[in-house]
Amino acid sequence: MTYCVGMMLDRGLVLMSDTRTNSGVDNISTFRKMYHWEIAGERLITVMTAGNLATTQAVISQLEERNKAPQDRHNSLLEAPTMFKVASIVGDLLQDTISMRSADNGETAAAGTFSATMIVAGQIKGMEPRLFLIYPEGNFIEASFDTPFFQIGETKYGRPILIRGYDRTMSFENAVKLMTVSFDSTLKANLSVGLPLDLLVMERDNFVPLHERRITAEDPYFRAVSSGWSEALKHALDALPDYSFLPMWEDAAA
């Protein structure tokens, strides 16, 4: 399992992913799930992956090869004229990879074995920053300020944090704080999501990463947010009205 989040802000895009993969409780590994490519001053594109590891690595490897090979320039992320075309390239490649692996293994009817989803984010010069969620079938949807963030993987534990705390005008620093709380909540609830975390901040019209970092278990900021959030929840719970087992009228009379 995995957990990745891509978020739109007025100032740009913030992306975070975990790195844990597992095939049972005794087979846990660390693999990068966030990848980015850039042409300074012209474009910055990021892909995050969740799902079958062999499938996602095959897609990323093919994207890398297309970026290097002149004959594949029409399918290269570094040559695509728009972010919509970038999302189409990733979606088509994901669908083809899943179909091929399913057919090779005689599992056409059970393509879910090789399923994967991806988040594509980035900006090309002269255009707006854009964020897409790519489905295993190759189709995709685009984020807007009505749906300002996408999650893939183990989404349910961290989603309430994002919904309550998100503000499109928030600073990058506060967005990172919000994401850190969302990831901490997910880590606490599900052992299949794990540190280290990869963080990338993409500022509007700045075609190199504004900030890039790997967050480990020893990271002082992550530890401070994790412990601080736990304490804040306890204080918030104590501050709420106490529940009474007495009927309302008896409680009021007392």
Rank of each mutant, 00 (worst) to 15 (best):
V208M: 12
R20E: 00
E38I: 03
R213E: 00
T180C: 00
I163N: 12
A236L: 07
E38L: 11
R204G: 00
A58L: 06
I60F: 04
L53K: 14
N174M: 13
T2P: 01
E173N: 14
D18Q: 07
H36N: 01
L162M: 05
R168K: 13
H74P: 02
T56H: 02
E107M: 13
T30H: 09
D92H: 12
A103G: 05
T82V: 02
L246F: 08
T108W: 04
N75C: 10
A80D: 11
Y221K: 02
A175I: 06
L195P: 00
A217Y: 04
S29C: 08
A103T: 02
L240A: 06
E212A: 11
S230I: 14
L237M: 08
Q95G: 01
A121S: 10
S61P: 02
V208F: 10
V25W: 03
F207T: 01
G6K: 11
Q62H: 03
V59A: 06
R204N: 07
L195R: 09
R204T: 01
T97E: 05
L200G: 04
C4N: 15
A217C: 02
V14G: 04
A239P: 06
I152T: 09
G6R: 11
S102K: 08
R101T: 06
F222A: 05
T147Y: 03
A58W: 06
T46I: 02
S230E: 15
N67F: 02
Q57L: 08
M248R: 14
Y3G: 06
G126W: 13
N174F: 10
Q123N: 04
S102D: 10
S102P: 10
E154N: 13
W249T: 14
A80V: 03
L53P: 06
V25H: 09
A224L: 07
D167V: 11
T108I: 09
T113Y: 08
G138C: 08
V90I: 01
A253L: 14
R43Y: 07
C4Q: 14
G153K: 06
N75H: 12
P129S: 13
M127Y: 08
M8E: 13
Y3E: 03
Q71R: 15
R159T: 09
P196L: 12
G51A: 04
E173T: 15
P247Q: 04
R73N: 11
T117P: 03
M127K: 07
D242G: 14
F207E: 01
P220H: 00
V25G: 02
S185G: 01
S17M: 09
L77F: 05
F84K: 15
N190V: 08
V90S: 01
N139Y: 06
V90P: 01
L63K: 11
Y35G: 08
E218M: 14
E38W: 03
M179D: 04
F207G: 00
T49A: 12
D198A: 09
G126A: 11
D10L: 13
T216I: 00
T56G: 05
H235W: 03
N27Q: 15
